[in-house]
Amino acid sequence: MTVNQATATRVEQSAVVEARQLGLTFQTNDGPVRALSNVDLTINKGEFVSFIGPSGCGKTTFLRVIADLEKPTEGTISINGMSSEQAREARAYGYVFQAAALLPWRTIERNVALPLEIIGLPRAEQQERIKRTMDLVNLSGFEKKYPWQLSGGMQQRASIARALAFDADLLLMDEPFGALDEIVRDHLNEQLLQLWRRTDKTICFVTHSIPEAVYLSTRIVVMSQRPGRVTDVIESTLPKERPLDIRESPEFLAIAARVRDGLRAGHSYED
């Protein structure tokens, strides 16, 4: 398929991620592990989709399939109408890993610059993006520090800055705020929402926190374990504009309760 055709399809359907009967079985020494099964999901442009579910239900695996880091063993996945491989080659997404994954021999700003060097941006533009994203995650003043000189949470923020500097239209974030304290987490949640509203990015966001999922998302995908599958998809009725205290509103609490019920139903207590 040529690039033009690919763009044409995208404009038509505006589906950014399309999973059809997606399944993935890992072959391990202890036999096959079915990490995903029968996942049908369409994520449209501009959505903020959270994935929530018990540990080991395949959230990371699903993001990795989107990112072309794993190949599905059943079904299909398409990104912007392209295969996941073509999408990766077109640098369609930025990925924030569950751990910071900073290079220890680079200062924080050189770490943020890494993807920019790889795509070959001019120096001036690199500098501008580094400054902007470092400000955004409140790391100004730490540009020249090495990763080991920063706390775990600061390292994670640096890795978020790195993904934001890459500036792809699709952002895949795997528990990006898991290691942060509540206050910083609130702040970054606000920043992320602002960024999303301003830029029309599509965001796939994995979290274990129900309030975080409800606060951020336009849609919440509840997953369950063994085999990992989607058990519930909850549309948020919250407005796009969300001050932090929306979390005390009855509407917010109602959605949170639904997510909790969905999680309970999918949780297996047999073992």
Partner: peptide, 22 residues
């Protein structure tokens, strides 16, 4: 680490970029 290699992969880094930068 595998994660760093994955990271380069998501940037679609060429083999020589991965070599020199990682």
């Amino acid at each position: 680490e595998v994660m760093h290699l994955d990271l380069m992969h998501t940037y679609n880094a060429s083999a020589s970029q991965t070599f020199w930068k990682l």
